[in-house]
Design a protein around this nucleic acid. Structure first.
Length: 595
RNA sequence: GGCCCCGUAGCUCAGUGGAUAGAGCAACAGCCUUCUAAGCUGUGGGUCGAACGUUCGAGUCGUUCCGGGGUCACCA
């Protein structure tokens, strides 16, 4: 039980004892005590003052006395200021926490709750390489999956690959027209970049043709429809749907190039999936429910044969679910895939990590599923996040205004290398060790940068300013970890640590603060899981590292005043480094032993 | 226009209805003969977009307005 809930229930019991009526958690608040006051946790009395008709001072004093009397091992003192009852947790209670948990790798994590959750993230298109926005998605999805695991859930990570459609055909057409048989191997290029380049070439050609037609007197609208390269592309899509062998062959080849490129990037950033869905397999799903929906009069057919659902009672418009030619639209397959996910995996919850531009789409999807009477409608969650934009506006791959994921990673790793060389602390590392360190630091900086902000907020990224390695950053937290490891290495060379009691001496303020902060980790994991928000972890782990660094500057661990203090500070250090490691792991960030 | 999200220090962001609104960056001033200075300590910097309202108490809740963004496809 966490300190805060222990205090809550203690207060409830003591209040009942004092005033003979029952109370609940909603009758008062327990907060952390502000640093300028004495105490660790504060009970806010105003609400109770009203119901009990007592002065805040009297109430605070009575409650303080009672709580102390009821829990002499837990609290060592109290004070009342205005309507605030500040409680101090006993030193021995903090020492006990340390003794019980300091070496526990699973500290703060929950036992299995036998719930199965699917997290869908990444979901790339196979016509261009990944960019900064994809990285936010990947880091977020991966981290949320880890956080949910830490909360006891069984998690299935999935990705739906958008591998078919008109945009894919565009790259294919351009390759046919301009490549003269070139391959990623012959061009010495990563496959996803290679294919992406042809996607750009398509758009260049398309633009050229449209302008030419306009100069011949056609309207823009007609020119866009009649451009030969676009007509070819549309024909190719039809050929693909009819499974024309040469088109399917080219499609397979080009997609395999892209996958190879993606795999490299995924491996580097540590993204992985338990199951990958391909849109080419799922795009026909969901047609069955249309038939059923029509029979049940949930869906209706218009004169031209198209099928719709009326959502006006939910403040949404009518939505098309089947085209007049009988083919399905995006949302049709989404319904089918949602159903397949629940049926195949027996999920308790299905989470979609998708940008906030699709909020409306996901709302409509959920509503349709509910109307169709599918039981899982209320177990679908859209974890929406804000777009990553540049100072110059939105990123557009067609216009080349994107921050490419691979370039960005290279840049960050190079920055890590530069800083490391300047500092010269690991000159004895081998080439391989250095390479590994640069990856750990560069990716740590990136991931922290993209995860430290509330996901739902959109981010503006200025590529001119490279990401810092100081302050509220990944490397700062990693550095704190490395510092602690350095102490531990040093101490292990000294005579063995004795196992004597650590709790008899008086704790210093920074020691107390650290222990109290460590205790909160459990609740932080819980919050981050409920909110599906990794930034809660990032903020916590930064504040913990910051506090430890103050402690480090103020007090010596290895050369503490006496053996007892040394043991205490060692266990605080071990536990801090453990929580840092664990917290960063939830963000997908690794820790270096030295840096 | 309807619906949704955002607006806090020069910049990037924290801030379960509670005490004098906090960090990082940037600026300035200090701290390496003692465990890693990617660190620590300090200074300056705010009409929390605006106005009403609810409340003992509002950055936080409500209403309206202002500013920014998203979305409302037989695209995905």
């Amino acid at each position: 039980m966490s300190f805060i809930s222990y205090i809550q229930s203690s207060a409830i019991k003591s209040l009942t004892q004092l005033y003979g009526q029952s109370f609940s958690e909603n009758d008062f608040q327990v907060n952390e005590t502000k640093p300028e006051f004495e105490g660790d946790y504060t009970i806010v009395l105003f609400a109770l003052v009203k119901t009990l008709k007592k002065s805040p001072e009297a109430l605070g004093k009575e409650l303080g006395e009672q709580i102390l009397k009821d829990h002499p091992d837990f609290f060592s003192g109290y004070n009342v200021i205005k309507g605030f009852l500040n409680l101090t947790i006993a030193d021995q209670q903090l020492s006990l926490l340390l003794q019980k948990n300091y070496g526990d790798e699973n500290f703060g994590k929950k036992a299995a709750n036998h719930k199965k959750v699917m997290v869908e993230y990444s979901s790339p298109n196979t016509n261009k390489p990944l960019h900064l926005g994809h990285l936010r998605n990947n880091f977020l999805g991966w981290s949320v999956a880890e956080i949910l695991k830490a909360n006891g859930n069984e998690v299935v990570k999935t990705s739906i690959v958008n591998d078919r459609g008109i945009h894919i055909c565009k790259s294919m057409i351009a390759w046919q027209m301009f490549a003269h048989g070139e391959t990623p191997e012959s061009a010495h290029k990563k496959g996803d970049h290679f294919v992406g380049d042809y996607y750009v070439k398509f758009n260049d050609e398309y633009k050229k043709e449209v302008e030419e037609l306009i100069s011949k007197g056609k309207s823009k609208e007609i020119a866009e429809k009649e451009a030969p390269v676009m007509k070819k592309t549309q024909q190719m899509l039809l050929d693909w749907e009819q499974a024309k062998p040469e088109v399917r062959e080219l499609w397979k080849t080009m997609n395999s190039w892209v996958y190879k490129g993606f795999d490299e990037t995924y491996k580097r950033i540590g993204s992985d999936f338990d199951k990958t869905f391909y849109e080419s397999d799922t795009y026909l799903l969901g047609k069955d429910f249309v038939k059923e929906g029509l029979e049940k009069n949930i869906l209706f057919r218009k004169d031209d044969g198209s099928v719709w659902i009326d959502l006006s009672d939910k403040n949404l418009d009518e939505k098309l679910v089947l085209r007049s030619d009988g083919t399905s639209v995006y949302i049709t397959q989404d319904i089918g895939l949602a159903q397949q996910k629940f049926e195949e995996y027996h999920l308790d919850k299905s989470i979609y990590v998708i940008g906030d531009e699709q909020l409306h789409h996901m709302k409509v999807l959920k509503e349709i599923i509910r109307k169709l009477g599918m039981p899982f409608a209320d177990h679908i969650f859209h974890l929406s996040y804000g777009m990553v934009e540049l100072t110059t506006g939105k990123m557009k791959s067609r216009e080349g205004t994107v921050v490419d994921a691979d370039d960005f990673i290279d840049e960050m790793v190079a920055t890590a290398e530069k800083h490391t060389e300047e500092l010269g602390k690991v000159n004895d590392f081998s080439k391989e060790e250095l390479k590994e360190l640069y990856e750990i630091l560069g990716l740590g900086a990136m991931k922290f940068y993209l995860l430290r902000v509330d996901p739902k907020k959109r981010m503006i990224f200025n590529p001119e300013e490279s990401i810092d390695f100081h302050g509220f950053t990944g490397p700062f937290v990693q550095y704190t970890y490395a510092r602690i490891q350095s102490i531990l290495r040093k101490v292990s060379e000294q005579p063995a640590i004795s196992n004597q009691q650590t709790g008899t001496g008086k704790l210093l303020p920074l020691e107390r603060q650290l222990m109290i902060m460590l205790e909160k980790y459990e609740n932080i994991i819980l919050d981050a899981g409920e909110e599906m928000n990794p930034s809660i972890i990032a903020n916590y782990v930064f504040n913990l590292a910051k506090l430890y660094n103050s402690f480090y500057a103020e007090h010596s661990v290895a050369n503490a005043e006496n053996e007892e203090k040394k043991n205490l500070r060692l266990s605080i250090s071990v536990m801090t480094s453990g929580v840092i490691k664990s917290g960063l792991q939830l963000l997908g960030i690794k820790v270096p032993e030295r840096m």
